[in-house]
C-alpha cells in the first residue's frame, strides 16, 4: 500500500519519454516533414494495430513467433542452468566447458543461422536453435558465476545435516544462486525476443518478423510498424510476467532494485 503512489509516479515518469517520441512522430507526420508514404501517422498505425489484433490471421503469426520464443527461451533456461551448475559442481566439467564457452560466447550467433537452416530446415527448429544459441550464454554465465559465489558455509550447513553432494547442489547451492540466475534469465529473455524476430526477418514464411519484412518490401509502411509495436509490447508483457515470477521466487532474499 505504502508504495502505491510511488509506483504510479514511476510509471508516469517512465511513460514520459515514450509519449515524447510518439509526439515528435505525430508532428513529423502531421506537418508533412516526413512523407506519409515513408512515415505513417501514429494514429494510422494505432488504427491498423487494433484492426490486426482482432484478425485471426495476424494472431496466428504472433502465435508462431511466441511459440518459437518460448521454446527457445525455455530450452536455453534449462540448458544454461544445467551446464552452469555442472561447471561449478565438477572441476572436470568446468575445465572442459569453460574454454568452449570463452570461444563460442563472443561469436555472433546469427552467423550460425545459415548452418541451422541447412541442417534443421526452414521451419521452427532452425529459429528455435538460433534463439537457444543466443540466449543460453548469459544464463549459463550467470548461473556458473552465481553458484560459484555461494557462501560455502551454506553448503556446509546442508552437508552436515546429511545432504549428499547432489542434494546440496540442488536444494542449497542453486536456490542460493537464484538472484544471479534470474538476472541471467532476464537478459536471456530480452535476447530471445530480439533473435526470434531477427530470424523471422531473415528467412520465414510466418511470424511477426516475416510480416515486417513483407510489408517493407511492398512499401506498406503502416503494416511495417504494426509487428514492431506488437513485439515491443509482447516484450513489455513478458518482462512484467517475469518480474512477478521473480518476486515470488526471491521472497526471502534481501530487496534488490530491478
Amino acid at each position: 500500500m505504502r508504495a502505491r503512489s510511488g509506483i504510479a509516479t514511476v510509471v508516469l515518469i517512465g511513460a514520459l519519454p515514450i509519449a515524447l517520441i510518439v509526439g515528435v512522430w505525430h508532428v513529423l507526420a502531421a506537418t508533412g516533414m516526413a512523407p506519409p508514404s515513408l512515415l505513417p501517422a501514429p494514429s494510422a498505425v494505432a488504427a491498423r494495430l487494433v484492426q490486426q489484433w482482432s484478425s485471426p490471421a495476424y494472431l496466428e503469426h504472433a502465435a508462431s513467433t511466441l511459440l518459437r520464443l518460448f521454446a527457445g527461451f525455455g530450452i536455453a533456461v534449462i540448458a544454461g542452468i544445467a551446464i552452469g551448475v555442472a561447471v561449478t559442481a565438477s572441476r572436470w566439467v568446468g575445465a572442459t566447458v569453460t574454454p568452449l564457452v570463452r570461444v563460442l560466447a563472443p561469436v555472433p550467433k546469427i552467423a550460425l543461422y545459415p548452418a541451422f537452416i541447412l541442417t534443421l530446415g526452414f521451419g521452427d527448429a532452425s529459429k528455435i536453435a538460433l534463439v537457444v544459441a543466443d540466449a543460453v550464454f548469459p544464463i549459463l554465465l550467470a548461473t556458473a558465476q552465481g553458484t560459484a559465489a555461494v557462501e560455502p558455509k551454506l553448503a556446509w550447513s546442508a552437508q552436515a545435516a546429511g545432504a549428499s553432494r547432489w542434494r546440496c547442489l540442488l536444494t542449497v547451492v542453486l536456490p542460493a544462486a537464484l538472484p544471479s540466475v534470474l538476472t541471467g534469465c532476464r537478459i536471456g529473455l530480452v535476447i530471445s525476443c530480439i533473435v526470434v524476430f531477427l530470424a523471422e526477418m531473415i528467412t520465414s514464411t510466418d511470424g511477426l518478423g516475416h510480416l515486417l519484412v513483407r510489408a517493407a518490401r511492398s512499401f506498406q509502411t503502416v503494416d511495417m510498424f504494426v509487428p514492431l509495436i506488437t513485439i515491443s509490447l509482447l516484450g513489455l508483457l513478458l518482462n512484467a510476467g517475469f518480474n512477478a515470477v521473480r518476486r515470488r521466487l526471491l521472497a526471502g532474499f534481501p530487496e534488490t532494485t530491478e
Partner: peptide
Amino acid sequence: TGPSPDRGPVFQEFALFPWKT
C-alpha cells in the same frame, strides 16, 4: 573424512537459507 550429521556446525554468520522460512 567429511561432514556428518554427528557434528553440527553453528557459524558466526548464521548461514541460514534465505529462501526458506
